[in-house]
Design a protein around this nucleic acid. Structure first.
Lengths: 156, 156
DNA sequence: AATAAATACTTTAAGATTAAAATATCTATA
DNA sequence: TATAGATATTTTAATCTTAAAGTATTTATT
């Protein structure tokens, strides 16, 4: 292919390498320090942003994972008393998932540690550089999404 | 925490968001166009860079995944005749995994498509910007790794 | 040579993930 | 009011993933 194509491929491999590295470190930390996993953390983080809870389908939408996936994670979190399923008045098909008091307390500790781990790992980047790179990544992501709309107008 | 810490956290979330987006798209494409998966592609890509083959342990080292993980993927690729296990002369514990002729041919097609998909998705970035960002990411990754050595000198 | 320790790989158990099928319920239409 | 279609969730089957345990073989020590 073109050299531009190779440059973009190399960028992707760097992006993937760094993300996997940080991601793996976060998983290790969550396992060792909190006996939990990143998917569980992600579910609790989403619920934490919505104290009134989220319907299962909203949750899988926010997290961009399948419905069935959330079912299993919610089951295990509920077993431990960290989340609870609440019926939705007026719609017996739906269930709202929300953090329990215990879940809220547990997540507060995890979230604080999580921010600290990332701050440690990315400490080599100044705040200004972090903001600049984040802005650049937004532009990249938008370019990627625009491309997909051209390919598949159903998402437009 | 500090605002710098929040800036780094936001950068991480952007990085993760873009990576997951591209990653998901690649998985979809591999499934729909080649009836395969990213882990299988990764194994074949590693073997493609080593035509003489790799020992199972070398392969899991290169891919940074567990030994048992590679066993299962190799089993399925071998069933389809894309890779083969070759005994290592002088060490009956070890096995070398390498692409078959069919595996080589199949991977050549997949790799070419793969580069094209990434080029399409990242088309919004100029070649120069791609090189610049890749360099920046290398610096970030190195900073992250140096930090870990300070924490855990066993990796030094 | 015998045995202890290390190495290479596979197996197992548990969770994560998806697509597709199955259930249950709701909504709209005939 | 039937009933057909849509929606919300769970279940199922397959793959991926890891840590830990298990098997086989090699290497080092006594």
């Amino acid at each position: 292919m073109t050299t531009a194509s190779k440059d973009r491929l190399r960028l992707w491999l760097r992006l993937l390498g760094l993300t996997r590295h940080v991601d793996g470190h976060l998983r290790d930390k969550l396992r060792l320090e909190f006996k939990t996993t990143l998917p569980r953390f992600d579910v609790m983080a989403a619920l934490s942003r919505h104290p009134e809870g989220l319907k299962m389908s909203q949750l899988s939408g926010v997290l961009r994972v399948s419905n069935g996936n959330v079912t299993g994670i919610a089951d295990r979190l509920a077993e431990e008393g960290l989340v609870e399923r609440v019926p939705v008045p007026g719609d017996r098909r739906a269930m709202i998932l929300r953090l329990t008091a215990a879940g809220n307390a547990e997540f507060a500790e995890q979230a604080s540690a999580h921010e600290g781990w990332i701050n440690d790992m990315l400490h080599g980047i100044s705040a200004a550089d972090a903001r600049q790179m984040a802005a650049q990544l937004i532009a990249v992501a938008q370019a990627a999404e625009n491309k997909e709309e051209l390919d598949d107008p159903s998402h437009a």
